[in-house]
Amino acid sequence: MNPVLIAVLVLGGVGLVCGVLLAAASKFMAVPVDERFPKIRECLPGANCGGCGYAGCDGYANALVDGSEEKINKCTAGGAAVAEALARVTGKTAEAVEAKTAYVHCKGDCSATQKKAEYNGTKTCKASRLLFGGEGSCTFGCLGYGDCAAVCPEQAINVINGVAHVNGARCIACGQCVSVCPQKIISLIPADAAVKVTCSNKEKGPAVMKKCKAGCIGCGLCQRNCPVEAIKVENNLAVIDYSVCVGCGACQAVCPKKCIL
């Protein structure tokens, strides 16, 4: 027999066997994919920011499909539009998505506070904090090396004059900066919050006064003047409970250090 013919036959045969085997395998071992998955996945923005608490949009869509997740308003990046789209697909009623934004509770920039040392190490917040709580005199405030800005998927954070600022218009409230900040001074607050505490220092008043012009001294004036008891001084620091706050601005008006914005 012609050697070329044998070669063609053998190679063709191997190809045919492989092909038939694969076709049979994909037919008999097909795993049914839930048809709702691609529809739900399509509604999500695909930013994979993790703001919903799942590992990316696929994770959230999977949880919605298999029923382990009930709520359809968890996508902070997409907000109300995504919740509505999900409501159409899943047949659930959309609940209001509370628009949130990250906020840095510190206004201790270069003009308000001083350095206690010169730091020349690795330029990250995490590293600088290891040496005496950072180079600033206040060990609670923003370190200013921008670990939050580096992790932000939307470039919504800028370090200005030594303190991180969140651009509310770009922030998708994914919460990555909240978890990466070694000082734990970033939190997610309602996007339309009327008042915010701009300090995180938990030391007593006199100590704060020495370190920073913009620090909360825990005087308690805001607490006494709040009509709905939404603001409390805990550990020498004012904290606002946004579920109660009505945004009247009374605390802002009485704060002697102007650390409620």
């Binding site: 191997v14 190809g15 492989c18 092909g19 085997l21 694969l22 395998a25 071992m29």
Partner: peptide, 12 residues
């Protein structure tokens, strides 16, 4: 050919 088919099969 064989390796390509094999990997596909293993995946399935």
């Amino acid at each position: 050919l064989v390796i390509a088919a094999l990997v596909q099969l293993v995946e399935i």
